[in-house]
Amino acid sequence: MAGFDLTDLEREVIRPLLPTKVRGVKRVDDRRVLNGIFWRLRTGAPWADIPARYGPFTACVNRFSRWRKAGHWARILQAVSEAYDGKVQMIDPSSIRLHQHGANRPKKGGDPVAWGARAVG
């Protein structure tokens, strides 16, 4: 079990919140798909690079998209946070790569993400 895979406690908290509507084909196990989604979000890899142990990558991307549109993710994160007495913390380790001189560029307002993008270009 990887560090970003669901624990048994998290799975039991989340299970009642997951949609159960079957869409024509045999449903891939929710835990496998969720772990695949978490793997992809943690690594930043393309959806197609999700390891086979998490099921078809199409199942992961489709459920992620459908559940996002339906608002399921907000309920899932809220339930997990409550299960841990609100002590769940998330850190986004993503970063923006800058040109070596980009950090010294004068900032003239606007979008900070765009500063890095202009410095790279």
Rank of each mutant, 00 (worst) to 15 (best):
R40A: 09
R32V: 12
G110V: 13
R15Y: 05
E10T: 06
K108W: 11
V28S: 06
R68Q: 12
R42P: 00
R105Y: 03
K21A: 08
A59M: 05
H99G: 01
G110H: 08
V80C: 09
K69V: 03
A70Y: 09
G36A: 07
T58Q: 11
P51V: 10
T20C: 05
D8I: 10
K69Q: 08
Y54D: 04
G24Y: 05
D92V: 11
G86E: 12
G71S: 13
G24R: 06
T43A: 08
G36T: 11
T7E: 07
V88Q: 01
A45Y: 03
R53H: 05
D5F: 11
I76H: 03
I14W: 05
V25A: 07
R27Y: 06
T20V: 14
K69T: 08
K21I: 07
P112V: 15
L41E: 02
V113H: 01
K108G: 02
L18M: 13
P93Q: 10
V120R: 15
M1C: 04
T43C: 03
V88S: 03
L9N: 07
D5S: 11
A103F: 12
G44P: 01
M1T: 12
K69P: 01
P112E: 13
G116F: 14
H101D: 15
V28A: 08
R66H: 07
R75L: 13
R27C: 02
I91N: 01
V80E: 04
P19E: 11
H101P: 00
V28W: 02
E12Q: 11
V28N: 00
E82G: 05
I37V: 11
P56E: 14
G110K: 04
V120K: 15
V120F: 13
P93W: 09
G110P: 12
